[in-house]
Nucleic acid binder design. Sequence first.
DNA 1: GGGTGAGGTTCTGTATACAACACACAGCAC
DNA 2: GTGCTGTGTGTTGTATACAGAACCTCACCC
Lengths: 229, 229
Amino acid sequence: MIEPPTLSLDQDPPHPAEHKLLSRTVADWLAERIISGEEVPGSRLTETDVARRAGVSRSPVREALRILEGEGLVQIAPRYGAQVARVGIDDVEELYACRMLLEPVCTRLAVAALAPDDIAELDVVRSRMERAVANPVRFLNVNVDYFRTLVLHCPNETLRELVELTWKKAVRYWSIFARLPRYAEISIVQHKALHDAVLLGDGAAAEHADRLILERAQKEIVATFEHIS
Amino acid sequence: MIEPPTLSLDQDPPHPAEHKLLSRTVADWLAERIISGEEVPGSRLTETDVARRAGVSRSPVREALRILEGEGLVQIAPRYGAQVARVGIDDVEELYACRMLLEPVCTRLAVAALAPDDIAELDVVRSRMERAVANPVRFLNVNVDYFRTLVLHCPNETLRELVELTWKKAVRYWSIFARLPRYAEISIVQHKALHDAVLLGDGAAAEHADRLILERAQKEIVATFEHIS
DNA sequence: GGGTGAGGTTCTGTATACAACACACAGCAC
DNA sequence: GTGCTGTGTGTTGTATACAGAACCTCACCC
């Protein structure tokens, strides 16, 4: 009888080294470049060219491009190849409409499932956020950490995966926040409502707070886009 | 300057033959086998073995497995390989909780965006459904056609993609319906509420009707699972 | 007897080679 | 001048070859 590698899939500790395949490495590298804007939206990503630039063969590059397609960072047309996914104000609004359907519920379920230890862990991250208010980039990262940690406790794994999927698409826009004046100051206040709900284990309040956070984020991104154009 | 193949991506007519790559063919073939239960959940899918059975090399098989992973039909662990995704009552409940977040809204937006021609098209599919009531398998297919046609008009493409993603996971459970006594008779009545809303262009009513349909579907699947175990 | 390590087997991950398709451009006919 | 066709180049899609990791077995040692 075939015994499945349940442990390898579910547990974290067994793989401290975190097997990182070349394809995943290339995908991360390319994603970084796309997010930072070094790869301009709409430009073609030739397999051979990417392979040459990354210093690997076409095989892992090919897989990396499929991964990024699934994450919405590139578009692939059969027999034509990949190109950097375009970004637009419409995409932002569509994406955030979806996030608002998924994440508040995900947050509510997660909060309801929090154990005392988990709350303590989140409290640590929260204080890290407070200490990072002066550093926008660092604040942004810790902020993401908080949500990632929180969502991790959502008992509905399918929902969690969908939320993470939308995140991967949204990451592309988050760099905007770091350049916003008074971004951290306002965020930390909004975030307090969420964190208070977490401390109380109040799922409904957390859901509401998350929705407000998302609404503001969308507005800021859209406003920035309109300002640019 | 690189000119993107906008036409190839957006229009339908240019590709009447519908380019079907080997990897996609293998993916469909394997998906069919998984959905039908010929490939038992949890069993390993060795690349070499699948390649031999499909009569192709490992390359397209490898890609096919990644595709199916994205569609939730197989699970892949690094340096271990793929196995047929397991199914369970928990998965059904998680999946349908997600569908209930996404689809009713998607339906509402689609209905609001329907043009007279679209409504006429849906009316045709509806009458095909009515004629297929006696044939459960055929009814199921036409039923899916209706939803697919409807959702196609949702202006939020991101949402549509998420809905289609959850469908690909849900397909696995739909074969249950065809074996349910009086499945079509009840469905056609439930569906009438949705179709009436479509005819009237009443998004809110359509959203509500869709939610009821999903609730029933979930109950039926869960009940069947419990009956089996 | 139980644990441990060497060896072999099998599979994935990566590299490379080849085939087929798509597109652009030049040349020609009308 | 316009439209078509054929050729050439570049890219993807598929096949195959190779390397390395994981696992299983089994003998050996404590």
